[in-house]
Design a protein around this nucleic acid. Structure first.
Lengths: 339, 339
DNA sequence: CTGTTAGCGCATTCAG
DNA sequence: CTGAATGCGCTAACAG
């Protein structure tokens, strides 16, 4: 059994050079797969590397070259399903390009989120992928100073003009609403996020558009927007049901709202048709399997990583916006059993 | 609107020293909160730092000092709920100590998982927290050479003697089984992982112990162990139901097996009592809310991070094993409606 | 194809 | 309490 934690001096490129009988620079060429070394020399150097157990010291390389080989993902809570799936997609794309991923959750360190960004700046990360926090805007000036590239996911930055990848929030909400309308409903409620959020605005406007397109009067009493972190969705739905003309169907605009509604005693999946924006884990195993608008998070993540990699490699183009389509996944909750 | 990606030369400690009219070393003292600088000097230096927008270059500091301020979490799939919650707990603990977290999913880099570990070694990460992969043993010799500290989570390493934090797998499985036995069942099946896994072995032995303690004969036909990545749980359960004395209750030993069973057409939650090891997301919203043994992942993660931090700070003690208790969460699936 | 020189920005060592 | 000198390990720029 090996034991961890012993430290001795590690061999350097100079040691390898001596062992292989070549110059320092030649070793560097081999290690970095640069041209300018014969196959024979390469083999000699490689042999010396394995004999000595040489490992390149990234810190030195980084200091000299200015590139860190590090990208950071800044999210609110890396353990939330959407965000962890995003992280996984990004990591996959980056690791295929020899870049390691740092993850910073602003929630974990609310007061110190800006400190964390400063730490990323000190580390000279090559790029940042940002899933903007709902809670508070971060100060990205430290990383901008050092020429780090930024990509925003899910919604654009209000202050910084840069690349941005997101779902077609509006179209997704449109599709959710249209689905219920096509099933014959006319009283369709919308429970969603506040309009202060970009995504909230987009989605509610998709809902309204679908209603208008089918010539259905929009009843503002059937629209409830609130911060989904706070309670109140169930009560809002109850109030709607007490109208003389209550809703027969409902669209929920985000997962938190969906879960609040499903957990509410005032909501009965057997009596009200329901389509949710955002899939939730195990949505197929619920009491009534949930019909949802699913975001293609993996594509969003890998696209964000790809845009970032292009810029890191020196591609200079104007800021781009990429919209990734959503998908309607029909299960059961959109149809009422009795109907 | 600011625009990202412009690069100019950043100020260094020398610039700050000149501006403040002190020496390089004094700046270093202030930046690192070392003693040996008067309050007056500190203020002068701090002022110069803000005026110039100075940011320490971590690479240089790292090259000189040998410490990277980086810890890596090596998991199989960072998007899986258990693993992302673990990551979040670790990140919280580390960020409180000024350390950033790298996440490496071996799944994202299947063929190259060992290469990723080598990359961590080259980066001289201060420590590694490892949630061992089911798929394949990794080669940690590169990081051991550079004196990196390791902590294993969930199960110990078969090869390396080091710190290790995990749930009381055996006690948890015991509690799950005992719960069903106490409810009057005598034919309790166990569907779980292979015994080649540490956790699989621990949990099945907890099940057996509970049965024996209550004087109930263990029927090996009611025990099914398999790789939960593969199909077959539903069929195995069906086979048990066709016995002359079929099970009236079942314990599932891990989330994948639980989900397979719940999705299987051969299993009916209304007819068979069920307790699952490991909570699953939204377990309370399932057709029949799931009674589970829940692991305290947050405690596991923060404990692992704490043990690692101690070693990074130079604490030399023999390898430690910390067992974190599990908790029975009673919902409904353990009782059959008719009974 | 290969080698020499210089210096990235900082922390360590030792001298005041 | 403060400063000067040195070099961590590597890569960029050039020379042969």
């Amino acid at each position: 059994m090996q034991s961890a934690g012993k430290r001795r001096t590690l061999p350097t490129m100079i040691d390898v050079a001596e062992r292989a009988g070549v110059s320092l620079k030649t070793v560097s060429r081999v290690v970095n797969d640069e041209p300018g070394a014969s196959t024979h020399t390469r083999d000699k150097v490689r042999a010396a590397i394995t004999e000595l157990g040489y490992q390149r010291n990234t810190a030195a390389s980084e200091l000299r070259s200015g590139r860190s080989g590090l990208v950071a993902l800044v999210v609110e809570d890396a353990s939330e399903p959407y965000q962890s799936e995003l992280g996984m997609a990004i990591e996959t794309e980056l690791s295929n390009n020899g870049i390691l991923l740092l993850t910073v959750s602003t929630e974990a360190n609310r007061d110190r989120a800006n400190l964390a960004v400063a730490a990323l700046a000190e580390r000279r990360v090559d790029g940042l992928i940002i899933f903007p926090s709902i809670q508070h805007e971060l100060d990205f000036s430290p990383v901008l100073d050092s020429g780090t590239h930024l990509v925003f996911v899910d919604r654009p930055s209000p202050e910084i003009s840069t690349d941005h990848v997101r779902s077609s929030h509006r179209q997704g909400a449109y599709d959710a609403t249209a689905r219920l309308l096509d099933l014959g409903h006319t009283r369709v409620a919308y429970l969603g996020d506040l309009m202060t959020l970009f995504t909230g605005t987009e989605r509610v406007s998709g809902y309204k558009q679908a209603m208008s397109d089918r010539g259905i009067q929009i009843d503002t009493r059937l629209i409830h927007l609130q911060n989904p972190d706070l309670d109140g969705v169930g009560e809002a739905f109850l109030a709607m049901c007490q109208l003389t003309d209550p809703p027969t169907a409902v669209v929920t605009g985000n997962s938190l709202t969906t879960i609040q509604l499903l957990r509410s005693p005032h909501f009965d999946s057997a009596r009200t048709a329901h389509v949710a924006f955002d899939d939730i884990p195990l949505g197929d195993l619920l009491r009534v399997p949930l019909t949802v608008i699913r975001q293609d998070i993996t594509t969003i993540g890998s696209t964000a990583a790809r845009l970032l990699l292009e810029r890191i490699r020196g591609n200079v183009v104007p800021p781009r916006t990429i919209i990734v389509p959503t998908q309607l996944v029909v299960r059961e909750s959109d149809t009422i059993p009795g109907a």
